[in-house]
Amino acid sequence: MKKQKAVFQQTIVVLLAIFSLTTPTFASSHQDAPLVVLDPAANTTDVYAFVDQDGDKKNLVVALGVYPFEEPGIGPNKFNFDNSVLYEIHVALGKDVAAGLPTISYQFQFTSRTKNRNTTLYNYTGVIQHVDDAAQNFVQSYTVTKVDHRPGHNRTVLGSGVVPPNNQGFVTPFYNRNNNGENPAKEGVATEDKLDRYTKEAIKHLNNGYVSFAGQRDDGFYADIRAIFDLLQLKNPGKDNQGGFNIHVMGLEIPIAELGGDHQVVGVYASTSRREFRIFSDNGNQNVGEWVQVARQGNPLFNEGLVAIADKDRYSRTSPSEDGTLFRKYAENPELAALINSILLGGSKPGITHNRTDIAAIY
């Protein structure tokens, strides 16, 4: 498998282009809590949200990344979305923004099928010319559902799409330079017409003006995370610790009109959930019970960088509506600030270590 570079539509081309900017809402926590680290398909890495304008139409573009640190060099390629995980991107409107409650949730749910089970060629039986052709042996599909939590509203299935193949190399040539699987992956592009064949075919136009994509992408978050957690051994320039790894991304283009117009502030966060119980048997496994949240992602690195070990899993399982009560103390008195003052500043800035209402206001 090769490092996946391409992006999925002009608006999501912009998404990858802004990974190094600070104005959009974005988040990243690749290894943020002990339990979810053991569950990579449900482990949220990044959340992105920004407004894009296409002619007279404005859209809120949101994206959720999962499955951190996918190594491109393995085979057979087993990095996939999990059929038993409920992936959700939540949008808060009006009073729900301050309350930390979702007004609308967009759910991605996946199903998988293997066309030929009498072969050891798990993903591919030949060179893939088009998404879901006969050579793509393992195929994932997904459904996007809009859940409006306001009284009098309900669930709306917006449509479904197909996940393009991961970039294995020779069998997926159109991901790579000069459409040659022996070459490195193509770089990101700035216009839709420059997208590779597989990505173009995987962009799905849903009902009511929504557009979706789900598939493997290059991890675009740049941070020297290793140095931060190695007793702040920061370097200039820093190292991109996510460089060379892939993640799996779900992206959705939401018409602003669906949210009530653009003269408002909205909140965006994401979560993953699993069923309460998993039953193992000789005839296969079953997942039963209510959905239980196992991870969430909002502003960047809050859980990973600020919340103590004792509360990290609790943070993953709770709602933003409880943050003020349960986790505000970690923002107001951040241990990380105390370490920065001690290790990097020689204790010269004690004021940065406590009463940080500025950080608390962000989170």
Rank of each mutant, 00 (worst) to 15 (best):
K3R: 15
T11W: 14
V14E: 03
F19P: 06
P24H: 07
T25Q: 15
F26M: 13
D39T: 07
P40W: 02
V47A: 09
Y48E: 00
F50S: 10
D52R: 00
K57G: 08
L60G: 09
V62L: 13
V62I: 13
G65S: 14
G75W: 15
N77D: 14
F81N: 01
D82P: 08
D82N: 04
D82V: 05
L86A: 12
L86G: 02
I89G: 06
H90P: 02
V91N: 04
V91H: 10
D96W: 13
A98Q: 03
L101D: 11
P102C: 00
Q107A: 12
F110V: 07
T114C: 00
K115I: 08
R117C: 05
R117Y: 05
T125I: 15
V131A: 08
A134K: 15
N137S: 07
F138R: 11
V144F: 02
N154E: 14
V171N: 12
V171Y: 14
T172D: 01
N180V: 11
N183A: 13
N183I: 12
K186E: 13
T191P: 02
E192Q: 14
Y198N: 07
E201I: 06
I203P: 09
V211N: 10
V211G: 05
Q216E: 10
F221T: 06
I228N: 08
L232M: 12
K239C: 10
G244K: 02
F245Q: 05
N246M: 01
I247G: 07
L252M: 04
E253Y: 03
I256A: 13
G261T: 03
G261F: 08
D262Y: 12
Q264G: 04
V268W: 02
S273V: 00
S273H: 14
S273N: 11
R275Y: 07
F277E: 02
F277W: 15
R278V: 03
I279C: 06
I279R: 06
S281I: 02
G284W: 11
V294A: 03
Q297F: 12
Q297S: 14
P300I: 10
R314N: 05
Y315A: 06
R317C: 09
T325E: 08
N333P: 00
L345K: 06
T353R: 11
T357E: 13
A361H: 07
